[in-house]
Amino acid sequence: MAALTLFFRELFLEIRMVSLTLFKIMIPVILAVKLLEYMGGVELLGQLLGPLMALIGLPESMGLVWAATMASNIYAGMIVFFTQPQQEALTVAQVTVLAGLMLMAHGLPIEARIAQKAGVRLGPTLLLRIGGGFLFAFALHLIYGQGGWLQQPNELLWQPAAVDTSLSGWLWTQGQSLLMVQLVIILLLTALKILRLVGVERLMFWLLQPLLRLLGIGTQATTITIVGVTLGLSFGGGLLIKEAQTGDISKRDVFASMAFLGLCHSLIEDTLLVMLLGAHLSGILWFRLAFSLICIALLTRWMDRRSPAFHQRYLVRPD
C-alpha cells in the first residue's frame, strides 16, 4: 500500500510540474499571437513570404497559409488554405510541398519557447525550423518536378466547418485545446511511469541504440524523443524540460533531441491532418523522415567538431 501511495504521489508531482511548465509558456504566447493576428501581423508576414513561394512552385497566396501556420498551428493554416482561390488549381505535388512547409515550421511562438526553456537558443531553433522547412520544400519541389510525379489536380479530402471568429468562440476553442493538453499529459506520464516500472523503457533503449548512434543522440533522451516524434514537440518538449532541469541529460543531447523533434515530430496527428489537404504520403512521411535523419546525423557530427565554448555561445543556453 505504501508503494502504491508513493507511486501516485510521484506521478502527481510529475504531472503538476510538466503541466505548469507548459501552461506558463503556452497561455501568454497564445494571447500574444492573438494580439499579433488582430494587429495584422500575420497578413504582413504572409506578404513577406509571398515572393519566396515562387521558388518552390507555389502561388504567392500560399505565403499567407504558411504565415498562419507558423504563427499559430497547422489547423489555422488549413483554415486559411481553404479561403485561397488558387488552392483549387493546385496539383498534388504542390499541395505536398506546401504541407512540407507546414509540417516543418508551425506553432513557432510556443514550440520555440519550449525549446528555449529546455535549454536551446532561439536562433538555431528558428533557423532549423524555417530554413530546414524551406529547404525540405525546395527539395520536394525539385524531385516531383524532375520526375514528373504527382502532377495531377489535387482533390480535397475535407472541407472545414464554419469557424466561430468571435472572441468568445476563440476563448472556447483555446480552453478546449488546453484541456486536451492536460489530459494527454496525465495519460502520457502515467503510461511512461508504468513502462519504466515493467522494464519496457530499457527494451526501447536497446532496440533503438543503432538509430540513436546514427543520429548522435544519447540514450537518456530516447523516451522523450519517441514521445515527441509520435505525439508532438509540446509533449516531448515538456518532458525534456523536466529532464533538462534535473541535469540527467547533457546539454549536447538536449540540443540534438530538440533539433530532431523540430524537424520530425507528431508523425501521427500532423501527417493525417495535412493528408486531408490532399498531400501525398511519399513527401510528408517517408521523405520527411529521411530528410530529418540525414540532417540531424550531419548536425550532431558538426557539433562534435565544435568546442564546448562554441556550444555555449551559439547553441545552448547557460544554466
Rank of each mutant, 00 (worst) to 15 (best):
3 A>Y: 04
7 F>A: 05
12 F>C: 12
14 E>L: 15
14 E>S: 15
15 I>H: 05
16 R>L: 10
25 I>R: 00
37 E>I: 08
40 G>W: 10
43 E>G: 14
43 E>N: 13
49 L>T: 03
49 L>M: 12
53 M>R: 01
58 L>K: 00
64 L>M: 10
66 W>R: 01
71 A>V: 01
72 S>Y: 02
74 I>F: 06
81 F>S: 11
82 F>L: 07
84 Q>S: 10
84 Q>E: 13
88 E>Q: 13
90 L>A: 08
91 T>L: 11
95 V>F: 07
97 V>E: 07
101 L>N: 04
110 I>S: 11
112 A>S: 15
113 R>S: 12
118 A>L: 04
125 T>K: 01
130 I>R: 03
130 I>H: 04
131 G>C: 10
134 F>H: 08
138 F>K: 14
140 L>F: 08
140 L>K: 02
147 G>V: 00
149 W>F: 15
153 P>T: 08
154 N>H: 13
154 N>Y: 01
158 W>V: 02
162 A>D: 14
170 W>G: 11
177 S>L: 13
178 L>R: 01
179 L>E: 03
183 L>P: 01
185 I>L: 14
188 L>I: 06
192 L>I: 12
195 L>C: 10
197 L>W: 14
199 G>A: 05
205 F>V: 09
213 R>I: 05
215 L>C: 05
217 I>T: 07
219 T>D: 15
220 Q>F: 02
222 T>E: 13
222 T>K: 00
224 I>M: 15
224 I>K: 00
226 I>P: 01
231 L>E: 07
232 G>L: 01
234 S>E: 05
251 K>P: 09
253 D>R: 00
255 F>T: 06
264 C>N: 11
264 C>Q: 06
267 L>I: 09
268 I>Y: 12
270 D>C: 11
277 L>R: 00
282 S>F: 08
288 R>D: 11
292 S>E: 08
294 I>R: 09
297 A>K: 00
298 L>A: 15
300 T>F: 05
300 T>V: 08
304 D>K: 14
304 D>A: 15
306 R>F: 03
315 L>I: 13
319 D>W: 03
